[in-house]
Write a protein that binds this DNA or RNA. Structure first.
Lengths: 246, 246
DNA sequence: CGGACAATTATGTCTAGACATAATCGACAT
DNA sequence: ATGTCGATTATGTCTAGACATAATTGTCCG
């Protein structure tokens, strides 16, 4: 039964209202997965508009993964598929500031060295020339929040060699100066090494959250970074609204 | 200069080809952030099509966050904004199977108890009636991969009380029987407790990845789950293609 | 009963217009 | 120099068609 779709009074665009009406039916469960939604010509009649308008609305839901469209058959509420969520990747300075804490940064070391193809993370980066290797520490209210170890592919970002990273973190500099097109993160839990524990001022047995990130630009490796957070200092948060409610 | 947009020979839909042509310009860096892309009437002339077709192509890029559109001013390559990524949330059984390992499941305990409003995770769930509390273990090739502690809101999913979870994991049952609309994940690193270490057959000092997930359906709490992975057994992977290349 | 085939039909895409809307820009006045 | 206001213009939305495409469905035949 589709006769209970009633356009709600609204000043937004009609196609958007149609999208929202349909989405409400799906998310509320009134239309379960597999349910066939009204044909475009039916919606055209219900809303008193052209088919192009209805098509735009339904296509938006299809693009969002809420419905599947099949020629000749119709459009159906999609079943759940992948389990994925949008993860907030920590821009540490922004996160610290958001928490209302004072952000601090300490450069620990910085030097240029050739790529070591024996290390998997450098192979994954795809660099084969000189790397700028940086170690630094991020502080929140003066207390260590994260230890960072970073590699910068100097053949992709030659300007980085001239930058003094003593007050500006490499992440902040990169964000502003080097565009990128792809990134991959790997998140794991690790027991830190004694030297890292001293840096972070934690017990050596304290579990740490380890975020490793590779960044590329059109296939060329830009940077690899490994950030170590004391497990009790940081939560990664991911929120998800599924493409389909099933 | 926009004269170098040349439609590539292709049998796909024209609007899609236009989208891809423009996206290539942006991702390659040929059009840097802030660059004004050709007006719709220019693209209309270049591709020899109606404005609606060009509009669909450009609107798709705007929806993806690659460009910003301003009335009267034009459309511009967007600057980077949020740092977010698509995180693959582990459906443990699927992940184990994907790795080519044998999946195993052990139910450890299961009982009904009232909601304890003294616990933050239960408050966040928003339940206030009876909960089904389940502890179980996920195995890969017979070895413990994850310890799971789950709460099911029985007022939202009364059918769960009659389910025998001795061979079917609550996650698998829920995925098939209970639709949900929102989820939140928190990921952290923890030192597990001795009992958990024995369950997972790891040293008590071994860092563990802790994934906590709350699931709601139209505002009503469905389930809370806490999964503990030995840090060396699991990597969460997140990949990201930014909405804008800058 | 089962397979091949053709009719049907819903979606996919597109056109050539139209009017609405908002923001920029320039002209003008203060 | 600054502020107001109207003309201009690019995008936002929509119409009423059209043809293409693919897949279901029924029909017919072996």
């Amino acid at each position: 039964m589709t006769s209970d779709i009633v356009p709600t009074p609204d000043e937004r665009a009609l196609h958007q209202r149609i999208t929202e009406d349909l989405e409400a039916k799906i998310r509320s469960g009134a239309w379960p997965p597999g349910h066939r939604i009204p044909f475009e010509h039916e919606l055209t009649a219900q809303y008193g508009c052209a088919r192009a308008t209805v098509n735009k609305a339904v296509s938006a839901l299809a693009a969002a993964g809420l419905i599947e469209r099949r020629r000749r058959a119709g459009s159906f509420v999609a079943r759940p598929h992948i389990q994925s969520a949008v993860l907030e990747i920590p821009d540490i300075e922004a996160e610290v500031t958001r928490r209302g804490q004072a952000y601090g940064y300490v450069l620990l070391s910085k030097h240029v060295r050739p790529t070591d193809l024996g290390r998997p993370e450098e192979v994954a980066l795809g660099a084969n020339g000189a790397l700028l290797e940086i170690a630094c520490l991020h502080l929140a209210d003066g207390r260590p929040l994260a230890a960072e170890h970073r590699l910068l592919n100097l053949s992709a970002t030659p300007k980085a060699e001239a930058v003094d990273f003593s007050t500006l973190s490499p992440g902040a500099w990169l964000l502003r100066h080097v565009p990128w097109t792809e990134a991959e993160h790997r998140i794991s839990a690790v027991n830190c090494e004694p030297a890292e524990a001293r840096l972070l001022k934690i017990r050596p047995t304290q579990a740490c959250l380890c975020v490793r990130r590779w960044t590329w630009r059109v296939g060329e490796g830009i940077t690899f970074v490994r950030q170590l957070f004391p497990g009790d200092a940081y939560d990664l948060v991911a929120r998800f609204t599924p493409g389909s409610a099933g």
